[in-house]
Amino acid sequence: MNISCCGSTEPLTRAQWMRLLALAPEQLLDAFIRPVAQRAAYSFLRKPEAGLVMVEGQTGATRFNLGEMLVTRCTVRLQGEQECLGYAWVQGNKPEHATLAALGDAFMQLAEYNKPFTEQLFSVLQQKEAERTLAQEQEVAPTRVEFFTMVRGED
C-alpha cells in the first residue's frame, strides 16, 4: 500500500508529498512547518473548510458509492519572489492539519525549501510510517493460523 520511497534518493513527487502530509501526525507538521510559515508571507485562497468526499467501492465491473468521508480542504498562496499555491485535503474536521498540509505543499514547490523539507520533515514522516506499518504487522502476526492436517483414518 505504500507509495512512499523510504530510503530512496529519488525526489518526492507532488502526489507523494501530499500523501505524506495528509497522513502525517498533526503535531509533527505543527513542530516543523509552523515556524517556517511564520517567517514566510502567505494568505488563504480558501480557508480551511470541512466537507465530504463520496468514497467508492468496486466489485468486478461494478463501481458503487460506499458512503461519505469527512474531509477538510484548504488552499494557501505563498507570496515571495515566486508565488505558488499549496493545496490540502485531509481526513476529518481538521482545520489546523489542513492549513499546515497546504503550507507544506506550497513550500515543497519552491527549490529553497524542497531540500530541507525532504531531509528534515519527509524523511521523518516516511520513517514513522514504516514503523507504524511494522508495528501493525507485528500486532497481527501472532494470530496467523498454523494448520495441522488431521489424519481421518480413511485408509
Partner: peptide
C-alpha cells in the same frame, strides 16, 4: 449540512493493511 468536494477513486481493498 456539508458540501461534497467530489468522489474518491474506488478503494483498492487488495492493498489493504490487513488486521484480519
Amino acid at each position: 449540512t456539508l458540501t461534497r468536494f467530489g468522489s474518491s477513486l474506488p478503494v483498492a481493498t487488495e492493498t489493504m493493511q490487513v488486521q484480519r
